[in-house]
Amino acid sequence: MSQAESQEKIRVEGLDFHYGASQALFGVSLGVRTNHITACIGPSGCGKSTFLRTLNRMNDTVPGTRASGSIQLDNHEIRDLDVTTLRRRVGMVFQKSNPFPKSIFDNVAYGPRINGGGSRADIADQVERSLRRAALWDEVKHKLHQSALGLSGGQQQRLCIARALAVEPEVLLLDEPCSALDPIATAKIEELLLDIADSCTIVIVTHNMQQAARVSDYTGFFLMGRLVEFDRTEKIFQNPAHRETEDYITGRFG
């Protein structure tokens, strides 16, 4: 493993998270490595999505929530960063695809535009590049100016990925991006994640263990708000250190 590979993009230490009176995360600590894919798995309600949403402070928008502990992006506390800058650097794709009710082009161009991104031609370039990275270009290039709501579910989700990529984030968070998709659409998205990971750090939450095994380099197993185990994916799936992890992997519960 080279030096660059082992660098940590995000370092989380002792992260606690509360929704009002109930605590959702208990002392989570882990490192997300640069340009690798990190998967978070665990039964529903285990806190993996909550964890993901603290990484770009998306939980700030939910009233009554509280996070404590340390999250560092490139050695800077994320709460010290301007939240909009943070979210530009740490993009997110949601469980349910959520294209804006605008044209396909305008969806992808949204990020570059609000970030004041250059000339018309630059933006058009950026849109094409992002759609190609999201493996959607060939399917939509002849209808860029039609409504994004006319696309299929899988296409919409890839559009959302393209839209997130268009601001050139350093990290991309994906919250169960394939849970509403059929196997073929899922395969397409997994394939493109592997491509994107060349130049982007990825954290993916999934309830699908096979998916985690297929795409990720590192895997964290969450259970009832705690990070039970975090290690290289092969290790987690072949030789887990904890009993709970093994039980979950082998389908004994969850």
Partner: peptide, 13 residues
């Protein structure tokens, strides 16, 4: 829908 707001916020708007 909440998802639309979150999508835009997540892009750094």
């Amino acid at each position: 829908p909440r998802g639309l707001r979150e999508a835009a916020l997540a892009l750094g708007a």
